[in-house]
Design a protein around this nucleic acid. Structure first.
Lengths: 244, 244
DNA sequence: TCAAAAGTGTTCTTATTACACCCATGG
DNA sequence: CCATGGGTGTAATAAGAACACTTTTGA
């Protein structure tokens, strides 16, 4: 990039598209918008917004996420940029995809117009999206799969107190595989990153499970020491799954 | 993204910035441009180009890589997009960073104006880059580090015939660590992805090394079976290095 | 004959896998 | 007392890490 000359400008727009993941009832979900108008009327789409002239990309993602969900300080990461010439019927729109992880029970619908049409859709049912949003979702889901094996981001999707089974189901939903209960617990507990709260579930029709919380302070210390959070068991299973 | 309205447009430009890696003399290098004019005159910068109105982002990256190096069919991957409001002094410029891996001895300087100022700079010496190119380079280098552990991209940087020591040095340069010679060979050879060419180096003042080539066909077959290329030894070492 | 890099195996330790039964609660 | 999910350990296998000497060539 030497100098900006006018040849470099053409009629175009930047947007951010948010892939917002949540976890509920053992199911990984994504927050989608039911489109009320053409193009792609009636189909699901990702919430997308223009980037403003005076804001950075990350700022735009944070702002729009808050506009939609009311949540701040959320895990959010840029994934990829989609700029196909014909990806938007109205003109050249280049979009930067971000994905975020939120605790679904902290989400409250905001009074924006777009939010009126927002719904949590199971990742399994999120098919036939508008524009190239299917590709975008796929890229973000793949990134999440990758990330979850090397960083403890899963906790972003769970309530502050959770059971080991909930945690396992979360990993199973993200990795799209089954995990062995004993091995999973052994591995997770051996990291010493969970605090046993010495509390149990109440009102369940079976032996109540112990509740844990994630020890973020300890994790940050370990990170500084070069600690690598890693779930191995999942690796091979993922490879098996790739066969399909 | 509902409809394009004019509020979404402002004076801005898209560019792609190419981080082009090569490997030579045991050193990982990146192709940089010595800037001949302000801003950042005299500093190193990444080769960057405007995205044309009628081309996709990937096409822009491929096109500009060829304009600079004369090479086609090169490993190339999008890494991240940088869109800080003030990243470019002349206006809002959002750039999509790509990194590519080329065989440095196949590179021939092309007669474009920018190429006249291109030079291979050791990754260790690539400091104080223009704009936010330091951040971009770092992001791409990190991506390469990640990728090299799970996919056999290293071969893209080596000549078609190489020795195991050259391969090891490449990994050491990328991972910024030392590897054990015996363990490295054991691991690499156990994957059965190298074809022993039954040839040896000539004219070296020591025992000549055997030459190998990468068995791409076999790798593609294995990939289809969910095979995961993985170098384990490096993992812990990287963690140690993160301490610095 | 020397310098320089190539080539080669074994042992120890750690991580991963597979696997089945009893426990606590609510209905 | 039954259904439901919670909770626990061990043994076999596989992978990773540490480590030192001999070989081949050109100069």
């Amino acid at each position: 990039m030497t100098m900006i000359n006018l040849d470099g400008f053409f009629k175009s727009a930047f947007t951010v598209d948010n892939v917002i993941f949540g976890f509920d009832e053992g199911d990984l979900k994504v927050l989608l918008i039911k489109r009320g108008e053409e193009p792609f009327e009636g189909q699901w789409g990702l919430p997308g917004y223009f980037v403003k002239e005076n804001e950075n990309l990350d700022q735009a993602a944070v702002r729009t996420l808050e506009e939609l969900t009311g949540l701040r300080k959320v895990f959010l990461e840029q994934v990829a940029t989609f700029g196909g010439v014909d990806r938007h019927p109205s003109g050249r729109v280049i979009t930067v995809a971000y994905f975020s992880l939120i605790k679904i029970n902290q989400y409250t619908i905001q009074p924006s117009s777009i939010a009126q049409h927002a719904e949590w859709v199971s990742i399994k049912d999120a098919k036939n999206l508008a524009f190239d949003h299917g590709d975008i979702l796929k890229a973000c889901f793949n990134r999440l799969k990758l990330l979850v094996r090397t960083r403890p981001v899963g906790f972003e999707l769970l309530p502050p107190k959770f059971t080991l089974t909930e945690l396992q189901h979360l990993y199973e939903a993200i990795l799209e595989t089954d995990l062995d209960k004993r091995n999973f617990r052994k591995k997770i507990l051996s990291m010493n990153l969970l605090i046993d709260l010495d509390e149990t579930q109440e009102g369940v029709a079976h032996r109540p499970a112990r509740l844990y919380k994630f020890d973020k302070k300890k994790y940050d210390e370990l990170l500084a020491d070069g600690f690598s959070f890693e779930l191995k068991e999942s690796r091979r299973k993922i490879a098996e799954h790739l066969q399909n």
